[in-house]
Every structure is written in structure tokens, then in C-alpha cells.
Simulated assay, not measured.
Amino acid sequence: MLITVSGPPGSGKSTTASELAETLGLEHISGGDIFRELADERGYSALEFNKLAEENDQIDRDLDRRLRDIAAERDDVVLESRLAGWLAGDHADFRVWLDAPLDVRAERIADREDKSAEDAREETAARQGSEADRYAEYYGIDVTDLTIYDLSVNTARWDADAVLDMLVTAVEVYDPDRDEGKYPVEADYDF
């Protein structure tokens, strides 16, 4: 089974995806980890590589191509990245979108990165807008279109354990043969 976990920064996707994979006995593949691998392969720190990615669209495209290839070639994986649900295309068995209000996400990021909530809020809002623009420009993806997801969860409403329990239950009762209302997702983007 290929499960994708997507969402904006601070939504809890990395923690949730890791715990979901462990609970279900699947491998967890993180877009952030692959980004750091790409940086290392090219001799950059993650911070340096992130700055370079703002000027060089090939970096995003290389990351997205790698994620798409993993989705096409592997099974028994929880694939986690902002675009995982889109990049996996029809290979995904179950797509999850995690989100929370910007102020909640900013608080989480501020705690994680030891910065002020206001700075985290400004940076997160700017990053989210920049990424949405790039995804629309590169691939014609509207990241606000949640119709491709099987389940969308506001992670501000429940603690991490409750979110995990919800997802495990949803995956366990999911019927892949029931196609009613299913939205096909093309994964043939120009990388």
C-alpha cells in the first residue's frame, strides 16, 4: 500500500507520517530527507541548498521527480512531502492532507526552531505563498484543491495520538475497490 501524507509547514506531517509508517509496518520516505540527500550529493548544507532552490527551479524538479519515481516503483511506503499526494498520481492508495491554522503552525515551528512565533508566522506565510506559486507555475497544481485527498485533518483539533489513531482506522477500513467519487490524479508533470 502506498499512502501519501501532505500538508503545509507545521501541520505535523513529518511526525504523523513517521508514526503512521511505524504503526502499519511500512517504510517512511520523507521529502525533507530526500532534499537533504540532494544537498549533500551536491556539496551544500540544507540551508545553502534551500537558498539555491529559490533561484534554480531544477532543484525542486529533481526532488519532485525522485518522489514521483519512488511512488511509481515502490509499495508498502508512507510517502511524505507537500506534493506527495499529487506526485504519486494513481499509484497512491490513500492520500492524507494535514493542516492547521497558520497561528498554530507558526507556534509549532517557533518551538521547533527556537524563534519567535511572529517570525515563524511571517516566514511560514511567505514560504507557503512562494511554494504555491512555484507549484502552479511548474506543474499547474493548485495546492488549495483538496479534492484529490481521501482524508483531510485539522491537526489543531486533536493531539498527535488522536490524529494517528484516526489515520490508522481510516486506512484499515479503506476499501480500494470502491471507486465512487474517486478523483484520478495525473502524475505526468514536466520535470
Rank of each mutant, 00 (worst) to 15 (best):
E55Y: 11
D40R: 15
A110D: 09
Y149D: 00
L38F: 07
D165V: 04
R66S: 01
P184T: 11
A17N: 03
E54S: 12
D179I: 14
Y44L: 09
K115S: 12
G10C: 03
L52A: 14
Y44T: 05
R42D: 06
G25A: 11
K115Y: 06
D165R: 14
I141Y: 08
L24D: 05
E41V: 02
P101T: 11
A88S: 13
A72N: 12
D175C: 06
D165M: 00
D159T: 11
R66C: 02
D99W: 05
P176F: 04
V171P: 03
D119R: 14
I148P: 01
R121A: 10
G85T: 08
D40S: 15
L87M: 10
A156S: 14
W86L: 05
D177Y: 10
V78I: 12
D69F: 03
S130A: 13
L167N: 06
D161E: 14
R74F: 02
L167E: 03
I34E: 04
A126Y: 09
R74Y: 06
R178T: 10
Q58T: 14
E123T: 13
R108M: 01
V168D: 02
T155V: 03
T155Q: 00
M1K: 14
R82S: 02
A125G: 01
R108W: 04
L38A: 04
T155R: 06
E186L: 11
L24W: 04
A17I: 04
I148E: 00
N56C: 01
V163F: 03
D99Q: 07
I59P: 01
L164F: 01
V168T: 14
E27P: 00
D150H: 14
D159C: 01
G89W: 07
E172A: 12
L52H: 10
V153C: 04
Y138W: 12
Q128I: 13
I3T: 11
L87Y: 01
S30F: 04
G43H: 10
D190Q: 10
A126V: 08
V171N: 06
E131S: 08
I29D: 01
W97P: 02
L164R: 14
G25H: 10
D150R: 11
Y189I: 09
P176L: 02
K13I: 01
L87V: 09
P176S: 09
T155W: 04
R127Y: 02
K115C: 13
V173D: 07
L151C: 06
A39L: 03
R66T: 10
I109Q: 10
R121E: 09
S45C: 06
E122P: 00
A84S: 15
R105V: 07
E122D: 14
A17G: 15
I59M: 00
D40I: 10
E131I: 08
E131F: 05
S14K: 08
D57H: 11
A170E: 04
G89N: 07
E113S: 13
L146A: 11
D64G: 06
E73W: 00
D103H: 13
A88Y: 06
R121M: 02
I109N: 09
A88H: 07
S130R: 15
P184Q: 13
D99K: 00
S81A: 15
A84I: 05
A106I: 12
R112L: 01
S6R: 04
R82K: 12
A17R: 08
L24T: 11
A100L: 08
D90F: 00
A17Y: 03
S152C: 13
A84G: 02
E48C: 07
A162K: 15
S6F: 00
G31Q: 06
T4D: 02
E41M: 03
L38H: 07
R112H: 10
V5R: 05
